[in-house]
């Protein structure tokens, strides 16, 4: 057995239940207390699993089950309160795809910028620039030198997807981004992800779409109220999930 690329052990993360977690100086001064409730809940707890190179793992579960939280932990943009997350290798996160773009700069500049933020050198972007633009589609290509804020939201996401999937990272995290874009672009995304998989990348996918999950995942994690309920084959997990849904219906 190879070394796992993602190793999660006893992972737990605790959130405040109250929306008014944020403090304010005014309240502290005038009420003498922070005015927020101390009630907390565990978004994830006692979650442990290993993922090996080349695996495609889907995460299944209802809203509030902790799927996105788990993904953020692996991406390293949230830190655990309990347990550890060990990731060996770089991560290409398909999360908040358009977050790194600046409206006032041209699309061309933005490609370099976003790739740069993920640690890609200018020369490496030069090399792949045409590939990125070709993937993003003719509309994007035509507007390369116009300010990014003139792009439609679909074009923005396409450009983001094109840049992040060209990152040479061994682990790819996908959070529902496949739901965006028109049908033609979605097909292109599927194709790109299959290429990544056959390339030996590790795929970690959060989705509500059973079709997407079955298409890419051979293994699945079922998160129920923050606990890892089942860790097994995709069919097994989806059957269990659907059975749970029916029982609660």
């Amino acid at each position: 057995m190879t070394e796992p690329v993602i190793s999660v052990e006893g992972l737990g993360v605790e959130f405040y239940r109250s929306r008014r977690r944020r403090l304010s100086v005014r309240e502290m001064l005038f009420r003498g207390s922070s005015g927020t409730s101390k009630e907390t809940f565990w978004a994830l707890r006692d979650v442990s699993f290993d993922i090996h190179p080349g695996e495609a793992v889907g995460v299944v579960g209802g809203n509030g089950g902790g799927k996105s939280t788990l993904l953020k932990m692996i991406a390293g943009v949230l830190l655990p309160d309990e347990g550890t997350v060990t990731v060996n290798g770089g991560v290409a996160p398909l999360i908040e795809l358009t977050g790194g773009f600046v409206g006032d700069l041209t699309a061309r500049d933005n490609v370099y910028l976003l790739a740069g933020l993920h640690g890609v050198s200018k020369e490496a972007v030069d090399e792949r620039f045409d590939e990125i633009v070709a993937f993003a589609g003719p509309q994007v290509k035509a507007g390369l030198d116009t300010p990014y804020r003139h792009f439609s939201s679909g074009m923005k996401v396409r450009l983001g997807f094109a840049v992040v999937t060209t990152l040479d990272e061994p682990i790819v995290l996908v959070d529902e981004v496949l739901a965006v874009g028109d049908k033609a672009f979605r097909e292109k995304c599927y194709k790109r992800m299959e290429d990544l998989l056959s390339d030996g990348r590790t795929l970690f996918l959060v989705s509500h779409s059973e079709r997407d999950l079955r298409r890419f995942g051979d293994r699945a994690l079922y998160l129920r109220h923050g606990r890892l309920a089942v860790d097994g084959s995709m069919d097994e997990v989806l059957d269990q999930y659907n059975a749970d849904l029916e029982r609660n219906a």
């Binding site: 991406a75 943009v77 977050g99 790194g100 933020l117």
Partner: peptide
């Protein structure tokens, strides 16, 4: 916030 949430820097 968006960048902080999406990049592991």
């Amino acid at each position: 916030a968006k960048l902080v949430r999406s990049t592991n820097l």
